[in-house]
């Protein structure tokens, strides 16, 4: 009977200790949050932000980008700079990307954030080439106008002097 009572106390204390150890970990893991662009990215670059109440205590904050939500293959890693919480990523082709943050806590444990989905869909090429050629035509017209008018003025000035 006495043994049973002591055993129960021992288990109870162990359970309580485990809870105490688990508490900060749960706080870290659940509080590491990642946010990013809300709309479709048209230019292939975007900025994501990592946040956590105890961000200063985290080390090696890295952003992981993958083309599938399981981060099974082709996962690219981008380290954040210093203790900045934002990271600007660039050069993405059309597609859907899954992005999450990973960080190392003071206890060397790895924590992972929520996963966000970012869709990159560049402008159609016909649209950008149309604008390009509109720009080219205006530019050529402008340069030709400027040079012709300037030349006319130089000639008229020379004629006046002659």
């Amino acid at each position: 009977m006495t043994t049973q009572k002591n055993g129960f106390n021992y288990c109870y204390i162990l359970f309580a200790l485990c809870l105490l150890v688990m508490l900060p970990t749960t706080a870290h893991a659940s509080s590491l949050k990642l946010s990013g662009p809300n709309s479709v990215v048209k230019e292939g670059y975007f900025t994501v932000s990592v946040s956590a109440p105890n961000f200063d205590e985290l080390n090696r904050v890295t952003i992981e980008v993958a083309s599938n939500s399981e981060f099974a293959k082709s996962t690219r890693q981008f380290p954040t700079l210093g203790d900045f919480q934002d990271i600007s990523l660039t050069g993405f082709s059309n597609g859907t990307y899954y992005v999450r943050a990973r960080a190392e806590g003071p206890d060397n444990q790895i924590y992972t954030s929520n996963t966000i989905e970012i869709t990159v869909e560049h402008y159609p090429l016909w649209q950008s080439l149309t604008l390009f050629f509109v720009g080219l035509v205006i530019f050529i017209t402008l340069v030709a106008t400027l040079l012709l008018l300037h030349r006319q003025w130089i000639h008229s000035r020379q004629e006046r002097h002659d």
């Binding site: 230019e43 050069g91 402008y123 950008s128 390009f132």
Partner: peptide, 22 residues
């Protein structure tokens, strides 16, 4: 890793070219 940055037909960049000149 970032092939789009070397793409000469990068749509937003193509639009940007003459915009920047003007």
């Amino acid at each position: 890793e970032h092939p789009q940055l070397l793409d000469m037909l990068f749509p937003a960049a193509v639009m940007f070219l003459f915009n920047n000149i003007f």
